[in-house]
Design a protein around this nucleic acid. Structure first.
Lengths: 353, 353
DNA sequence: CTGTTAGCGCATTCAG
DNA sequence: CTGAATGCGCTAACAG
């Protein structure tokens, strides 16, 4: 590896090709784009391109066409399963359309998020997709001022383009289920209300579903972070409340709590039930396997990308199907209080097959 | 949202600013770059920029400077924790240097990997980082032909720039540990040998460490995929071999096996020990918490990025510190066969605090 | 310190 | 169908 430095330029331009093929630059350009060329010259140009190994200069091209074929993506963080799936989905639809994504990470900071959007916009991306931690008035202002499509995911706001799972419905679904299983007292282990989607909507949906049509239901709240450890640290407080079921706002929260219960000899679901939201794969390998409402983040990525593409083509929100399905995944972590005796079935890897 | 289509151009150019400020274009350009300007004009230009909301055109600038400040990153897949951490690390060092990353995913296909590298190169990125699934002769050829730095991670190959964890050392470390814990018969649940790093080196290292200096050691192999389920499906076969310890080539493999054992009433570590590699967070919340050799993927990302930066600046391999530390994380899943009675300690969230 | 002059590589008029 | 000419917006000599 004696090579030192990489200052070599791309040297072969459209001009070189033209000369070698004995045609004009414009003819080569036409060959590369539309194709108004005689078959004969077509052949010559093709040959010249092969011989020279010509590759058109990205920047010169973009400077002319005013189209970068680049989509900017702003993410709150990288090291999370959901973000990974989301990106996988986005890529899956963007790539066949000839778009590529350029990624910026905001480390859960709203300010950084704005900064990143600014950067992307300067870079000349064709559109921006933001998996936001919270849509502020400033976000709205930019979406309106800038002349490029901006789509937010993860949060909702009426004045901008956005796409998110129905957290209220997810919470509601879980609430109804637990009510039907005969539970009357739940602790909702939630996150900060500054996260409107998870901290407020999901919780409110749960409470509604759980309490619907009865007056003897009780829901207590305990706030925790998004990670295992902070949930684990709140578990004692939760236990003191002595509910029949603990509802973690995310699967990770539930996993931390499960671990704590295990250490204290509290049996799940015999002594207490635990559920989560998200449908992460690991929820299926822990024991008991976690009952949860699963979201399809990859599908969300695909929809987000389609939405962006539509926006780019001058179509509006109406023309994209924005429904995000939910999947209720019943596994082993909930006890049916209606039954006299509880015999949780140990299916082989429930929810994984 | 009545807006339809986004065809507006960026209209204010350096020329407009120059006219408004009553200076020449070059003066504005200087203001933007070096800064050989009188204070007086500096003020006028600044004002003009603010008033017009001028933003320099990325493509025009790059066309001149021949520098994109873009690093291409080719990933095998997105939905994995390790990739997330790697990216986090890369971003952390690239961003302060004014670089941004553009991401392409190969879906575990070597061919796609090559294709993606090609695309990035055409885009005019300044360098390419490939988290490769296998370095082929074609990879080597490109690294040499193209006049831009290419760095491979995850795999090793003498003729190209690369950076990876020391899989052999990791395996060895685990082997030694289990030997010292009195284990004589292990099953290594590994992956395909086409993955040289994990499938071959890690395994060989383990065998070496485990068998070192004795003749009464036995290691059997069982092949599995990288995911929970495929490991789970091989667990019965592993169990039939009746080892005292199962070594999963990755934590996920071990987690799948743990689940199976749980279902069958096989107690870990009392009846059998289980260990993994990777140090994923979830290893700490399952029970028993998984003993493992942890890798710092974020650090790896940071090192990779630094390496790339050095390459860009004409420095070679020598000038980057490539040592990747390993962390042995002793938790609860291994029984000490030297002790008469085994009393695994249940620390609070071992390895998480 | 500053304005003038040239292109960077390509796509696109406009006449042929 | 094709070539010559023009300029995208910016930076970098070059003379002042």
């Amino acid at each position: 590896m004696g090579k030192l430095g990489y200052y070599m330029e791309q040297k072969v331009t459209i001009k070189d090709v033209a000369e070698l093929a004995g045609v004009s630059k414009s003819t080569v350009s036409r060959y590369l784009n539309n194709g108004y060329i005689s078959v004969e010259k077509q052949v010559r140009v093709r040959k010249a391109i092969e011989e020279t190994g010509f590759q058109s200069n990205f920047f010169a091209k973009r400077l002319k066409t005013r189209e970068s074929k680049l989509i900017g993506i702003v993410l709150p963080r990288m090291d999370s399963v959901t973000v990974g799936k989301l990106l996988a989905g986005i890529t899956r639809v963007l790539e066949p359309e000839g778009y590529q994504s350029i990624l910026l990470v905001s480390q859960l900071s709203g300010e950084k998020e704005l900064e990143n959007m600014q950067k992307l916009q300067q870079q000349g991306v064709d559109a921006i997709l933001v998996d936001s931690v919270g849509i502020t008035p400033e976000h709205v202002r930019r979406a309106k001022e800038w002349s490029l499509p901006i789509l937010y995911t993860g949060q909702q706001q009426a004045e901008v383009h956005c796409l998110k799972i129905d957290d209220a419905a997810a919470g509601h679904r879980m609430g109804v289920y637990l009510r039907q299983m005969g539970h009357k007292h739940a602790v909702f282990a939630g996150v900060t209300e500054s996260d409107e989607a998870v901290g407020i909507e999901r919780k409110a949906g749960f409470v509604a579903g759980f309490c619907e049509g009865r007056t003897d239901a009780q829901v207590d709240f305990v706030e925790t972070g998004f990670d295992f450890l902070s949930a684990y640290n709140q578990a004692e407080e939760i236990r003191k409340l002595a509910p029949s079921v603990v509802v973690g706002a995310t699967d990770n929260i539930s996993l931390g709590i499960l671990r704590y219960f295990h250490e204290r000899g509290v049996h799940v679901p015999e002594d207490i039930s635990v559920v989560g939201f998200g449908g992460y794969d690991v929820g299926a390998v822990v024991y008991p396997a976690l009952t949860t409402v699963a979201f399809d983040y990859e599908l969300m990525g695909m929809k987000a990308a389609s939405y962006i593409l539509n926006l780019l083509r001058g179509k509006g929100r109406e023309e994209t199907n924005l429904d995000m399905p939910l999947f209720f995944v019943e596994r082993e972590s909930v006890r049916d209080l209606n039954a006299a005796v509880d015999e949780p079935s140990l299916n082989a890897m429930p929810g994984m097959a």
